[in-house]
């Protein structure tokens, strides 16, 4: 078996849903930017595969970032590059911007999509990690045109597994607007070099503070330290109502984050290192 497949390139959302419906008893995969999919298919070719090519879809919901009631909707086919060029994303959701900013390279960012990053369901998916921290929700559409909404934190159910059913496709994500004026938001990616890194540990944080700089809302997610990206509930709760942390609190806070980690050792780093670093950068987060 060698690398080969058929292709369907729907141009509209209706055509897309029709293609999905027509392929229900066949082996098919979606392809958006293709940066994960093509590598996977070259490594492990599949027999009688159809790629449902999303790259030529012209649908505005799939393809754009728009303001909606209570948040921003980001289409599944919005690329990392487009995220970077969006001024409001940068000012409102810096963690997402920074995740996109440090994703791979300029060339990959040109084609890699938000939807692809979520659907590939990698524990080290950077955009996915930021979206978890932002409490974003996925909007999934099925062949009947029905929409359902799932929080990004629950979207992935394991390495390379998501809640998407065979008759569904990820259409968009909605990021809720900030409820407080002051933000401490960013994305920390740990690896051996400055760029082109698959995160060894990643940490997305989006902390909202009121006018007195008291923390009112916190979203912290960690990647590459468990089979899925983790939202660190108890660490977030710990911050609410505080403004600055003293030394011992910082350690406690870091401990709460670390509790969510169950890392493995692989060629990039040992479990020991991942734990150690996660603790350290968590501590550093509130310095």
């Amino acid at each position: 078996m060698s690398y080969d497949f058929n292709i369907e390139s729907p141009q509209t959302a209706d055509e897309l849903l029709a293609v999905i419906a027509a392929n229900q008893d066949k082996n098919f995969r979606f392809g958006a930017g293709g940066t994960d999919l093509l590598l996977e298919l070259k490594r492990a070719p599949q027999e009688n595969l159809t790629v449902v090519n999303l790259a030529q879809l012209k649908d505005p919901i799939f393809k754009s970032i728009t303001k909606v009631a209570g948040g921003y909707r980001i289409g599944a086919l919005v690329t990392a590059g487009e995220v970077l060029d969006h001024e409001e994303v940068k000012s409102e959701f810096y963690t997402l911007w920074e995740a996109a900013h440090n994703l791979a390279s300029m060339q990959i960012r040109q084609v890699a999509t938000v939807g692809g990053n979520l659907c590939t369901a990698s524990p080290s998916g950077d955009i996915a990690c930021a979206l978890v921290a932002l409490h974003a929700r996925c909007e999934i559409i099925n062949t009947k045109g029905e929409l359902r909404s799932v929080s990004v934190a629950d979207f992935s159910t394991g390495v390379r597994k998501t809640v998407i059913q065979k008759n569904e496709v990820l259409r968009s994500v909605v990021v809720p607007i900030n409820s407080n004026p002051n933000l401490h938001s960013g994305f920390i990616k740990v690896g051996t070099r400055l760029s082109m890194e698959c995160s060894v540990v990643s940490l997305a944080y989006h902390i909202q503070m009121d006018d007195n700089r008291t923390i009112r809302h916190a979203g912290i997610a960690i990647g590459a330290v468990a089979p899925t990206i983790k939202f660190t509930d108890s660490a977030c709760a710990f911050l609410i109502g505080k403004s600055k942390l003293i030394d011992t609190e910082r350690e406690e806070f870091a401990g709460l984050i670390s509790d969510y980690a169950s890392p493995i050792s692989d060629v990039r780093a040992s479990a020991w290192y991942r734990e150690e670093v996660l603790f350290n950068i968590s501590k550093g987060l509130m310095e």
Binding site: V190, T192, Y273, V277, N280, I281, K283, G284
Partner: peptide, 8 residues
Amino acid sequence: EVDTYTGN
């Protein structure tokens, strides 16, 4: 410059 948190 050594980052003593990450070892970088």
